[in-house]
Amino acid sequence: MTKTNPGNFFEDFTVGQVLEHATPRTVTEGDRALYGAIYPTRFAVPSSAEFAASVGLTRAPVEDLIAFHIAFGKTVPDVSLNAVANLGYAECRFHRPVVPGDTLRTRSEVIGLKQNSNGRTGVVYVRSTATNQRGEVALDWARWVMVHKRDAEAPAPETVVPDLASVVPPEELIVPDGLDFSAYDFAAAGEPHRWGDYEIGEKIDHVDGVTLTDPEHMLATRLWQNTAKVHFNVEARPDGTRLVYGGHVISMARALSFNGLANAQLIAAINAGAHVAPALAGDTIYAWSEVLDTAETTAPGVGALRLRLVATKGRDETTTLRGEDGKYAAGVLLDLDYWALVPQ
């Protein structure tokens, strides 16, 4: 009898199934340092304990996406070890900042299944929740992933596609306890732009680009204990390439967005996200953002911007997203819709 885990295939999932994911993971200052070594991030709140204290946070949190990647990585052995690709996200809310010393563990519930027409793969929808060592929710999200079938002849399950919200309502955004931007240090943060300086429909070209390499994306993916075969094993894909983890592209684009959105300090929610095309080593990533909405919060000096963050392979001078046919423009890798907290 084998003792190894081959991962779940599409026919192993049932709607309502609850998966308790193994290996709780303690966040350390090393995670902060490695994240900064991999991505060109410079946001002041996670970079400076002094700055974090000046805006009312008793401890400097790590980047929001560190918590996301760690929590996401826990789900891979049970949800997406046999994935073709991760397809999208919805209804992701960051409930509280994660600080070094916090231990995260994740559980998921299967909320939908849909076999593809080819009969060889299917889409699995899950809702995942990450809690800390006190049992408090750190973040939760829904995602859907295309997974191989073990047996193409296995009968298709009843199709269940969950109804997921297109946006987290601004009144449901969770502002960290004590956050106060009323005495915000714009000089230390790096840019003077306030919440009121951004207009709905405005597009911001983040200018800089970063070329992906295999060592960096594999290091990042191992850091989050993400074991998906397609990221490491050149025999896992027909073309013999390693697929770059979609979260690596998210973090790279988020880091690049500092240029123009340096004061978008904290991610409050991810409304939707789509990995439009695969990224591979050698691709050069650029990013641009569009302001989709603005909202006020009850926290002193804190506003929220709803932003569309787009990552492209190669530079997109026109900052276009879709062509006249409604299809994504060539070279678009990521389309991410999120709320960020900014000073008013």
Rank of each mutant, 00 (worst) to 15 (best):
L81T: 10
L104P: 00
T106L: 11
E91L: 02
I111R: 08
N132C: 06
A183V: 07
A156G: 11
F186Y: 14
L139S: 02
E91P: 00
E172F: 04
L164M: 10
M146F: 03
P155A: 14
V168N: 03
V160H: 07
G135N: 04
F72T: 09
D197W: 09
Y125K: 05
N82S: 04
V123T: 15
P176I: 08
I70K: 01
R120Y: 10
Y125Q: 07
K74E: 12
H148Q: 13
L87S: 10
V110T: 06
P176G: 10
P162K: 03
H95E: 15
F94E: 12
F72W: 13
D163K: 06
Q133I: 02
E109F: 06
D197R: 13
P169T: 09
R105V: 07
A165E: 13
T106Q: 08
D151N: 14
A183R: 12
S80K: 03
G196Y: 05
P77G: 06
V62K: 00
Y125A: 14
P169L: 01
A85F: 05
V84S: 10
A183F: 12
R127H: 15
V79S: 07
A165F: 02
V175W: 05
Q115V: 07
T121L: 07
E172Q: 11
Q133P: 00
W141I: 00
V98S: 14
F181C: 04
K149A: 14
I111M: 08
A71H: 04
I174S: 05
G178A: 05
G88M: 05
V79F: 05
V124Q: 03
E136C: 02
A60C: 08
V161S: 01
G101S: 02
V62T: 02
A60P: 00
H95S: 14
L65Q: 03
A187C: 02
R143V: 00
I174G: 03
G135K: 03
F68D: 01
V84E: 14
G119K: 13
E91D: 13
G178V: 01
A183T: 15
Y89I: 15
D163M: 04
Y184V: 09
T129I: 14
T106P: 07
G190M: 10
D177K: 10
H193F: 12
V110N: 11
T121C: 06
F186K: 01
D64H: 02
P170G: 04
D163E: 14
G196H: 13
C92L: 15
T121N: 06
A188K: 11
V126T: 15
C92N: 08
L139Q: 05
D102R: 00
A71Q: 02
R93D: 10
G122F: 10
Y198E: 12
R107Q: 12
W144N: 15
T121V: 04
P155N: 08
N118D: 15
V76P: 02
R105W: 12
E153F: 01
Y184M: 07
F186T: 08
W195P: 05
E171K: 12
